[in-house]
Each structure stands twice: as C-alpha cells, then as structure tokens.
Write a protein that binds this DNA or RNA. Sequence first.
DNA 1: CCACGCTTTTAAACCGTTTTAAGAAGCTGG
DNA 2: CCAGCTTCTTAAAACGGTTTAAAAGCGTGG
Lengths: 345, 345
Amino acid sequence: MDEAASAAPRTGQGANSRPRLEDVAARVGLSTASVSLVLRGVPGPSERTRQRVLQAAAELGYKADRNASLLASRRSRLLGVMVDIHSPFHAELVEHLHTAAEEVGYDLVLSTLTRTRDEQTAVETLLAFRSEALILLGPVAPADTLMALHHKVPVVAVGRRITGAELDVVRTADEDGVGQIVDHLAGLGHRSIAYVDGGKGVIATDRRRGYRTAMRRHALDEHIRILHGDNTEAAGERAARHLLDGAELPTAVVAFNDQCAIGVLTALTRAGVTVPGEVSVAGYDDDALSRLSCFNLTTVSQSAEEQARHAVAAGVERLDAGRTEPQEVVLPPRLVVRASTAAPS
Amino acid sequence: MDEAASAAPRTGQGANSRPRLEDVAARVGLSTASVSLVLRGVPGPSERTRQRVLQAAAELGYKADRNASLLASRRSRLLGVMVDIHSPFHAELVEHLHTAAEEVGYDLVLSTLTRTRDEQTAVETLLAFRSEALILLGPVAPADTLMALHHKVPVVAVGRRITGAELDVVRTADEDGVGQIVDHLAGLGHRSIAYVDGGKGVIATDRRRGYRTAMRRHALDEHIRILHGDNTEAAGERAARHLLDGAELPTAVVAFNDQCAIGVLTALTRAGVTVPGEVSVAGYDDDALSRLSCFNLTTVSQSAEEQARHAVAAGVERLDAGRTEPQEVVLPPRLVVRASTAAPS
DNA sequence: CCACGCTTTTAAACCGTTTTAAGAAGCTGG
DNA sequence: CCAGCTTCTTAAAACGGTTTAAAAGCGTGG
C-alpha cells in the first residue's frame, strides 16, 4: 500500500507478543507520541496522519495496554465495584453500572464478597487496580471506616444510608418503601401485620423503622410485631415457623427483602397456610426471584438502573467535574403489587 | 526508634498519594531495589535489612501498585474470569475460583456478560488487564474462536465440552448426569419421561443426547419427547404450558437446568397439577434456587468447588509448569434427590 | 529576507515497579 | 597485604504507554 510500510524500521518484536505503540508508530513512520495522540482522539494531529495511524492500528490489531496507559497517565478511568455475587439484586445493578460507565468512558473492575472474602479484602483489590472511585453495593462497614476510605478515593455507597458522611450515597428511601407496603396492606384491610427483620445493618434499621412508623400512622401500634430475621430464605423460614408455633397468625407478613419473604412464603405454604388467602406476604427489592411466577411476590422496586446511573454519575462528577461536597441521591421506591397480597379473609 | 528513620532524605510526596517503593526505601535509607527484593521475599537481603524494610513498609502502609509491578515484571499473576453475573451457578464457581486462585498466589479479574455485553467484549476487557490465562464459564463461542483466543493466552473452558481442541476443559459429564436422572426416574417406575431442551449450545446438545441415550437404554424409545426450551424460567413455563395443552401429560419432566425446571414446576403447579404427585420434575446444576425448600428440586450437582479448583490448576499448570498438551477434566456428576420426584401414581 | 504566528510532530522525561549486571564490603587463606 | 570468595546492595535499564516543552514546517505580511 504505502512505501513507508516496508521502509519503516522494526523493533525485534517476538512473533507472538501483542503489538505495541512503537510497532504501529514504526509502521507509519511516525513517533509514538503522535500515534498516542491520534489513538486517544486528542486534537492536534493532521487528518492525513490520523487516517494512516488508525489504519495501521487496525491492521495490527493494536490495543493499548491498560496498565501501561494508566501508569503513564495519572488516570485509570476505572471504577471499582464491590458486589455480593450471590445477590440477584446486585447482579442487576452491575449490569446497569456497566452500561452507565461505558457511556462516560469508564471501565469497571469487579471485586466480589464471598464467605471468605470480606469487604476489606475486596476493597483492597479494587485499590490495587488503581480504581479512581469506588462504588460499594450495600456496604456493611461502619461509617467511619467508609469515611477513612473516602479520604483516599471517592466512595459512592449504594443502597445504604450513611448519616452525615462526606461521601456520596445513592439509595432509595427504604423507610418510605416499607411504609408503602404497610399502606398497601392496611388499605386492603389488614391490621395484624408482622415484620421479619433483616439483621443488624443500617438498611435493616431503616426498613424496620419504616414498618414501625407506618404501623403507628395507621394506629396499629398494638399490632406491631417484629420477628428476628436476616436476608436469607432460611431466616424467613425460621421466622415463619416461629409465627406458626405462636398463638395466632398475623394476616400479613412484611419481610426485610425478597429472599427472606420467599422463605416466609415457603414455610407458610408448606404448613398448609394459603398465601394470600390466609396470610399476605410482601418482600423488598423486586429481584429476579420475586418476579418468578411461582412466587409473584408483592414487593418494592429499587429501580436498579436509576441507582446505577446515579452512582456512576456521582463518582464521575467527583473525578471529572471536581465536585467535593457530598451528594445524597434518594430515589423514591415503587410499590409493585403482585399476587402474594390480598384482602384478609 | 532508629536514627536512620529521620535522617533519610524524603522525596516531595504529595501528602495524600499512596506511598511508593521509593518512600519506604528513603525511610530506611536503602535503594528501591533492595526494598523490592525484601517485599517479594526474594532471598538475598540480610536479615537486618529485611526487618527494617518490613517495619518501614508496615508503618507507611505500603502496598505495591499492581499495575506498575505487572508492567515491570513480565508476569501479572492475574487470571481473567468471564462470568454471567445472572447465573447462580456461576456465582458459586466464582466464589471457589477466588479461594483456589488465592491459594496459588494468583488474583482474579472478573468480566461479566450482560444483555449488551457479549463474550468478545468481556474477553477483550480481560486481555486489556493482561490476564495471563482466561477461565471462561460456559462460553458459547464456536470452538475455533476459542482456539484463536487460546493461541494468544491459555484458555480454560469450564462446563462445556469442546471436541478435539488444544485448550483445557473442565466440565462434568453432562450426558451421564442427565442419564442418572433418567435412571432415577425409570427406577421409580416412570416410563413417560419428557425432556425440556436448553437451546442451541454444546451443553444443551450433550444433555439432550444424555436423555435420548438413557431413554433407549431403558427401552423407552417410544416415550422420547423433547420440548423446545432454554435456560430460563420463562422457557420452562412455556414448555409446561405446551405439555398441558397436549393430549396426555408425561409422568415426569427433566429440564435442561434448574431455572428451566422451576419454570416447568411453577406452570404445572399453577395449572393444578401436583408435583411430584402427578408429575415429577427434575433439573440440573444444583444451584441455589433448586435448594430453596419451596422447590426442593431433584437435580444434578456439578460440584462447583472441584470444577473451580481444577480450572485454576489447569491455568496455573500452563503458566507455571509449562504444560502445553491440552487437558480435559471430566468430573462425575452427582444425582441429588430431593422432593420433586417420586414414583408415578 | 526576516520575524512572526500557527499547525503538526517529536524528543525526552515520567509513571512505579522489577530485574540484571556490576559494585561494595567483609572474610579467608596465602 | 593481596587475591579470591561470599554476601549484600545498588545503579540503571527495562516495561509500554502519556505528557510536555520544544522543534520543525509553513505560509504571511512587513
């Protein structure tokens, strides 16, 4: 094609190794600097140069080495995401985080929690990759731990309230969400509405409070009944068995989240209690499980897509727009009525 | 503590930036080379030096920058993992991959498939991070695409058969697994056993064949009935509805995987067909869903932990032991009998 | 013909490590 | 006191890019 192509000096590149910037520079007879400029879309190089470089790069199948790039520039354009890979809700968030990040030219590193891998480890991994900002999905670490972390790199906490902190928070109004469920149930005529708790986290606290507040609002103070629970099916089942053992069954049960609700629902059904015939059951998260037609759980949607979008935006604003004041985005939860709730008999 | 500590010259490090090798070197009054040696546990430095360096590093909270390290060394000690974040089975694999990798001193980069993010993109991300080997969970790409990839970097395919390829494969004997289910059902006295297919992938082909073979083995050729399906609950429901519309119901249904089986189970139950009373249902994968006590699905365990362990071992052998011949690890599937199957009435 | 500004290109420093080859220090025996 | 070993330590060159300050090219008007 071009006389320059064969005339260009070649560095002795091992046949199998991936092409380097130098290789494409040599190919078009330019400096690596020029090539770098073209490839990053920086204005400067002439149109002719641009074209030749792009073609050469394409021919060689050149891809910049992320690590070299990020080492050289101060930027990595990398957002670190801590996720619980077992959570269906997190799965959805990640999906939307990916698209949101891509749109603004960032990439994601995922680090997951497992039984043997705690938040600390996960975050360290993310930092080792030089994430410019951290998006933590449902972190349980105490506020000051998060603050210390935020001191090093912008942190966006998703799904959890953090009072008076300097870091960004994206969440839905959990208190209100549970309130809507209670409203819904009370509206159907329920009075004896029990709640299965979600353990010790902040999220659990908020939802519990939402339940209490809503019950009082409906003047159902004396029906307030909170059962010990957690965010697992097993916990839901335990709570339900506890209810079944008791004197009288409530007419409705609100659970901390969908997984827990499904546990409740299962245990009740197995004991011959019809849902929603005898007892209504509601969850929280609107996760993939709750949508299964066998459960058809009434629940609260947390709009994963919007949260993801806001989380990415928050991080990027810190990085690119230099925002420094903390931001809290509280999205309205949305009641999703399905078939697991009905008027009491 | 040590007079050297305060005497050491300091580079003008921005107060907030993380400490560099140079900082700890300055602190103990040594060269970065020595510090690097100590920190990597390379023999050479004297005991006294070792101690001082380790202490200084600890005091500064020094952590090596992964990217700089991997750029400088030829190694990254990074395994790239492609995962479908929506799959509960993959979630379990990842969990075990993490621990297995950690044991041999490797780290994991995760890249996930989403509706808008295909295998190609996911793999490119992993390569951009300089993964030394790729572990692909249930890849659907054609064999030659995988081979081309393997030409660049060792590839371990998990969960899927790849005939005559040079890359490593870790999987369970799917044909045998489905065979075990059919054996189990036939042993219970079932004769009319239908199968809900899993679409077009290799995995689906193998399981379908396993069904066919087993049915023939039990001389049930004429009862072979394969319904169109997929790896989703929705597909399972569709298939079940199709069955319900037909003339007569089979006494047992084997589904491609657990999610599909749950769809079948749901649709049947909703139509008033009792499981396992009138129809037995079985799945495949033994994923978290199948274990939910509301489903209690009879299924086949793929021993996630073992597969993960073998996958990591395969990759590491290529990298560290220089193995070049392909390896195929086929683990025996294990029938897990739960409550969704019983003798026909 | 020169000084001037504008666009395009490049040499060279740098990012934070690893690695290698050579240097320094300390012994030993002659 | 020196050659010859060890044993430690280090200077300097990678690694593959980005970035910056300066050079080169090129009209243009004085």
